[in-house]
Design a protein around this nucleic acid. Structure first.
Length: 284
DNA sequence: GGACAGGTGCGGT
DNA sequence: ACCGCACCTGTC
């Protein structure tokens, strides 16, 4: 993979391990829009970029090139990570890695990730995307034609509960409002310096953040690559491909120890694979 | 109309 | 510490 920074864009050549569609669609982020030419607009915090993928070249256009460089984790060697996982796994695991090998783990904005994944609880991706878009349009500042920044914690704390109901948050509206208040009061200050267990403990004090959502925040915003969020899809994969019979609440720790520093990436491969199987029929 | 998908909070033990 | 139930809304 070769990366070239030009004045207004990042060009990534020879990117067999960067599949834009797979990376965007595996449930890490909720603010992206597909355009008619199969390219995408991606929004994060108060920034936006345009990303397109043709043959073996990915082009990212927008200001804040350094932000997007880190966001798309361009300094990490995913070919190496994928190979390590494939060498550790059996035929099934190798096939799952092969299908998902273009997925990258994004480095997302912490506050946006917290609020987005509170919305994700007991919810489905299309509705999460819709709700986050509506909240941003209502409470976020405009950053381009029809595009809005993610709302600040202050805006979320101040918002009337009606705003949350109208955005389709359902019962999660009150969770967001109070968690935004807690964040403003310093509830997650210094979380960067804590180890996984202590960081998770801090996050689960927020209302609407349980173990699964906390693990998503750790993996997708705090670069904790050994953390494995376990949702219904991962439970399905676990019971399908693993002999071990852990209770649901123990699956995360088991897979984390099994795959080590690449466990979160393996989780993304599994999530993407199982949903592909669900859409296309059994492709094993 | 009614079942279903999907994590967390809460009340009971 | 662990279990079982309620929760909001879009879709079939």
């Amino acid at each position: 993979m070769r990366i070239l920074h030009t004045n207004d864009s990042i060009v990534i050549e020879d990117c067999r391990y960067f599949d834009v569609q797979a990376t965007l669609s595996c449930g890490q982020l909720f603010r992206y829009h597909q355009l008619t030419d199969n390219s995408y607009v991606v929004l994060s915090a108060d920034k936006m970029c345009h990303i397109s993928h043709n043959q073996d070249t990915v082009t990212i256009t927008g200001s804040d090139r350094e932000y997007w460089h880190r966001y798309f984790d361009l300094d990490t060697n995913y070919e190496h990570k994928c190979n390590v996982l494939m060498q550790q796994g059996d035929d099934n695991i190798q096939h799952i890695c092969q299908v998902g090998k273009g997925i990258r783990i994004l480095n997302q904005d912490l506050e946006e990730t917290i609020i987005s994944f509170i919305i994700s609880a007991n919810n489905m991706i299309p509705r999460i995307k819709n709700t986050v878009a509506k909240l941003s349009a209502t409470l976020g500042t405009p950053i381009a034609d029809g595009y809005y920044a993610f709302p600040t914690m202050q805006a979320l704390a101040d918002a009337d509960i009606e705003v949350y109901n109208n955005a389709g948050c359902g019962f999660r509206g009150k969770y967001i409002k109070s968690s935004a208040n807690m964040i403003l009061n310093g509830a997650i200050d210094g979380i960067d310096t804590l180890d996984n267990d202590n960081a998770r403990q801090l996050l689960t004090k927020l209302v609407g953040v349980g173990p699964k959502v906390a693990n998503c925040i750790l993996l997708f915003a705090l670069s904790r690559g050994d953390v494995v969020p376990v949702d219904t899809w991962i439970k399905k994969v676990y019971h399908k491909y693993y002999e071990a019979q852990h209770k649901d609440r123990d699956i995360s720790q088991y897979l984390s120890q099994l795959w080590g520093q690449n466990a979160g990436l393996m989780q993304q491969y599994m999530f993407y694979f199982e949903r592909s199987v669900d859409k296309l029929g059994n492709i094993l």
